[in-house]
Design a protein around this nucleic acid. Structure first.
Lengths: 197, 197, 197, 197
DNA sequence: AATGAATGAGCGTTCATTCAT
DNA sequence: TATGAATGAACGCTCATTCAT
């Protein structure tokens, strides 16, 4: 049944094509017409693929979450030492700055937007947040989940700072500082990472 | 002329009473009618005090910014050592968690929302952001502005993580980790703070 | 009871002070606040003197009508020949151009505005219109009411043409043409005026 | 591409259907909801065809202007003598009384209303006013533009007098008087029309 | 008498969603 | 499948009018 595969594939393409619009203007400030125009289809067609604006946005959030986990996991195969792995994490951030900032914009928007529907949305959200942190934990050999959360949270802070800025110099400088902090920290508390043993 | 004083005072009260609504739902998802209802006044009266929804929100953002700077500066008088000062910063965060998380929500909304008006808004925003970071830099005797930014950005990350969560345990744990990181970092690089000399 | 006289006098002053505002912007485009400001009083005080915006406007229209009739009648005492009287009418128009144009603006506005309430308003309106035409008829010794109406209507046309123009050259030229027409007409049909017999 | 033709055609129909409402109540006193109801469509559909209430009104004014010029020009082909032509002009007025009165109501409203936007609107207005007077000048062989203006202005006066009256007897009587005046005038000053030479 | 803060119905307009084609 | 015209609830905002002071 190639038809279904195609439709799913097309739906995903539509999601990614709407990413920039949502990231730039936010869910509430983007209209269905704008999205349809950006996608080169009619509003009717858009509703054929997504039952509502909200659903489109949620599927985008979910898709971005999956992608993020994939990228993080792609760095995992390595067998390097802890400092090298920290460097790999930094590289990952630098290489994906643009897309990560967009993720962050979407993410925050989703947060605001979801406080209402609460349950379903937060389930999705929390699962992806957890997977993402587990990937970081595994990459750096961290057993203390609080530490993994801290790293994740710091990265988010750096990304949030980039919103509406797109200043890669500041980004690089902040990532470098985070890496430096982590190295210093793991130097002092080597037991925090299983890679040091 | 007690009239003017009262009106200004009242306006500020209205600002603070609208804080929760904006923090919870975001600028775009709050209606003037909701605000008026929450404030216990009519929409007409609301427009008597604020020329537009946008202006109300901007005044709220500015007011919160001023307040934040005041709180940070209140910690400044101290003559303690660096570790003590780091602890003071941590205390400040813990004590003001709730309001800081709301600030963050409003702040982010403003950021996203100000794409349009850009200039004036960003002036306000940047001034307060700068003052806030200078306060941190002065409190910790930091000369390297990138480092001050990093601390500010990490704190923001922790606050962003709290959005829609309100879990003070996680918050305390993350703040503690940040403090620990900073102490470790300043231990290794004492020249980073003038308080170490 | 001088109090009442004063109040009535004051009410009339207020009417004339609001004339320009209504003439320039039209009833619907002037707010009570603008009027109050122009009059140098509060909206509350304004409502003390007039029960509604509508009533204020109607009283202004009526007052202007009375004034117009007075001006026309002031030219009546003369015992001149018909051509001289036609010239007097022309002079009257030229001397009062500005105020007459304002009257016209108000008048038209009233027309639009009154189609709804119909009865009462039109009574007032028609009475003043009639008085005005009777004054013209008497001044020129016209017995044919249709002719008096024609002169009145032509003058109105010239005034309407001046709306938003205030070009006294065109006005003078048009008034002169009307006078010329009338003289030619009465030359050919001397029986149309009792002054020719 | 029949789609575009239909849409334009439909837009024009909507314009004419909204004519009565505007003519009766005036721009400021007609609401979008009233218009939509009169047109038998929703407000949303109305905004599909016109970007704003103002634009709808302007397009109506322009359309009426074009139509007026067309009607006037349709009388031009004639090769008759001056008296006959004056009669033709009178006929034209009598036959189109109803629509001309409505034009006048709209026109005046537009005049008053356009104080603000001034430039573009007045361009349109002045162009059509000029075309209209040129048509009269050509029809009657008038070289003196002031005279053409006078005739146009007198007609407007007669039409303004009809506002909210719709009394075709008075109208006919006033038009007859104007025609009589013109004939008398051209009798005395034959050089005023090229058709007399 | 006078003030101006307060009210709330109603305005022009937008936009997610539906549906005839 | 796809289109885009149509719908109408809801938005931000205005302003004639009221009323506590």
């Amino acid at each position: 049944m190639p038809k279904v595969v195609d439709a799913d594939q097309y739906r995903k393409e539509l999601l990614y094509q709407s990413l920039d619009l949502f990231a730039e203007k936010g869910f509430a400030n983007v209209t269905i017409r704008q999205i349809a125009k950006a996608l080169g289809i009619s509003t009717g067609a858009l509703y054929h693929y997504f039952p509502s604006k909200e659903s489109l946005f949620e599927q985008l959030v979910e898709e971005l979450g999956h992608q993020e986990v994939l990228v993080l996991n792609s760095a995992m195969a390595t067998r390097k030492t802890l400092p090298k792995r920290i460097e790999i994490l930094g590289q990952l951030l630098l290489e994906n700055r643009e897309i990560l900032v967009k993720h962050t914009a979407i993410w925050l928007d989703f947060y605001q937007h979801s406080q209402v529907e609460t349950i379903l949305n937060n389930r999705i959200f929390q699962r992806i947040e957890r997977q993402s942190r587990e990937a970081i934990a595994e990459l750096l050999g961290i057993r203390d989940f609080r530490l993994a959360r801290f790293i994740s949270v710091s990265i988010d802070g750096i990304l949030v700072d980039q919103l509406g800025k797109n200043d890669s110099t500041i980004f690089a400088e902040q990532v470098a500082l985070l890496m430096e902090m982590l190295i210093t920290y793991f130097d002092k508390y080597p037991e925090k990472s299983s890679l040091n043993s």
